[in-house]
Nucleic acid binder design. Structure first.
Length: 484
DNA sequence: GCAGTCACG
DNA sequence: ACGTACGTGACTGCG
């Protein structure tokens, strides 16, 4: 019998979705498995040489490979979803969306597809003649329509009552379509749980990604969004524990740049955004206002992302001269950060890649482009890759060690999800509290850092209603009980 | 299959 | 003179 063998491309998942054995008629599965095994065997010596030549063997052997069964377990375990709750939330959203639609049509005088950005653009800017400041923002899309993105709509707020209605409609429609509806369909009817796929090889920086469903972008920022998040629950008799690295990327920056000011701030347990504000503005730490801090926070994140002064001005609302001055003073005060970034960039220009603390590489050929915009984009990626990638290295090491620890010391506790700087666990509350100090210890000890790592814990019945969990302070030494 | 938009870290 | 903060995935519309 002649059987069609899957192509190497499909086996490797080149193209949008990989074909798996689950896609094949049962009689073909045997030959599929054989060809897969044979192809892999032929690939091993070839790829081993490639790994070696790129100095990636240790990273592969000691991090990526041990992580595979950890992720597989997390996928298999899944996370419980409160289906009746989600269904009720869906009905409520549907009602509100229908009301918003009717109101929007009332303002316009006719029905149209609000979800079509092109129709919406025609209505707002053609029929209602709303005006945007053309100098301020490039607002035409590639298709020639004026953008109806949330940034544009935010600027139009107050000029017409329809704007608020559209923004709310967008928001609710997003939550309904992406989370409430889609999630219900992906719940395993037998277990009441959803089982994401963690992609270990998709992200250029070394991060994981999550799909089908993506459980790394569950809403949290708005009230309605939080109600979606509340649908993720602990199983009967258990609770959820979230362990979250605080400001891991800024700590990685402090470590890699060896910046004395940032290192000192983290050592003292101070708020790095407030410290940055004080440094840049040249004012005492105590005089930093919440507005100073807000700007400094955007600058700190901007630095991680390789922003321009124009970019900062856009996001802070500061006049561009002020934003530019802020950045200049930042790099004066944090000269080590400047030196670090320059060094990373010139290394990438010479070697063609940037690398993380574990030697993970991101190749950046476009850093040599003669096209300004392309080159600038590559430079921003170069600056960001070691930071985002090293943070990812740390979390991966922690996951491997935590999984090993749980297997031996707390088999009832299960690691469910990773969301870049957060690990989510499920287990009996007493068990979680028993091992919490060890979890924190493992997480902050994943890599030896000049900047102290910090982990915040939260416990709750679902992924939204979580209360901070403070570790019982370490007892000095057992105080001998008074003799009885 | 791309474009536009928007959810997360 | 250029375009403008990094990394993802999912949905809807449209040709």
């Amino acid at each position: 019998m002649q059987v069609e063998l899957p192509s190497v491309q499909s086996l490797l998942g080149i193209g949008r979705k990989a074909i798996t054995m689950a896609d094949l008629p049962i009689p073909n599965c045997g030959s599929y498995a054989c060809s897969e095994a044979l192809l892999v065997e032929r690939l091993v010596p070839i790829l081993a040489v490639e790994l070696d030549e790129a100095s990636q063997t240790a990273l592969f052997r000691d991090v990526e490979m041990p992580l595979v069964p950890v992720l597989a377990d997390m996928e298999r375990v899944g996370i419980a979803v409160d289906l009746p709750y989600l269904a009720e939330l869906g009905r409520e959203l549907q009602t509100r969306i229908a009301n918003l639609e009717a109101e929007i049509y009332g303002h316009v005088g006719h029905e149209f597809n609000i979800a079509s950005t092109q129709r919406l653009s025609d209505v707002l800017f053609g029929e209602l003649h709303l005006e945007i400041d053309k100098r301020k923002r490039r607002s035409k899309t590639k298709t020639g329509h004026i953008s109806t993105g949330s940034e544009v709509l935010e600027e139009l707020r107050g000029t017409h009552p329809i704007i608020d209605l559209i923004l709310e409609h967008r928001h609710l429609q997003k939550l309904q379509g992406t989370y409430v509806d889609a999630l219900q369909e992906l719940v395993d009817p037998n277990t009441g749980r959803v089982h994401t796929s963690f992609n270990q090889t998709g992200a250029a920086t070394g991060r994981l990604s999550s799909s089908d469903p993506n459980l790394q972008n569950i809403p949290i920022r708005t009230d309605i969004g939080k109600r979606v998040r509340r649908a993720f629950i602990a199983r009967e008799g258990s609770v959820l524990l979230s362990a979250d690295y605080s400001q891991i990327e800024l700590r990685v920056l402090a470590h890699m740049a060896d910046d004395p000011t940032l290192l000192e701030a983290f050592e003292q347990g101070e708020d790095p955004h407030a410290v940055t504000a004080a440094e840049v503005l040249g004012i005492p730490f105590e005089s930093v206002t919440s507005d100073h801090r807000r700007i400094a926070k955007m600058v700190n994140y901007g630095v991680l992302y390789g922003m321009s002064d124009y970019g900062l001005a856009e996001r802070t609302g500061l006049p561009s001269a002020d934003a530019s001055g802020f950045i200049q003073r930042y790099f004066q005060r944090f000269g080590t950060v400047k030196a670090f970034q320059d060094n990373v960039i010139s290394k990438a220009e010479d070697d063609g890649y940037a690398e993380t603390l574990l030697g993970r590489r991101r190749y950046l050929p476009e850093i040599r482009s003669r096209i300004f915009g392309v080159r600038q984009a590559a430079i921003r990626q170069t600056v960001n890759a070691p930071i985002q990638g090293s943070a990812s290295d740390i979390v991966k090491i922690a996951m491997i060690r935590v999984a090993y620890f749980l297997e031996r010391e707390a088999p009832e506790v299960r690691m469910l999800l990773q969301v870049h700087d957060e690990l989510l666990f499920e287990g009996p509350q007493a068990e979680l509290q028993r091992i919490a100090p060890d979890l924190v210890e493992i997480m902050i000890g994943a890599l030896d850092m000049k900047a102290r790592l910090h982990v915040d814990l939260k416990i709750g019945p679902n992924w939204e209603d979580m209360k901070p969990y403070i570790l019982p302070s370490a007892a000095p030494l057992a105080i001998p009980a008074a003799s009885a």
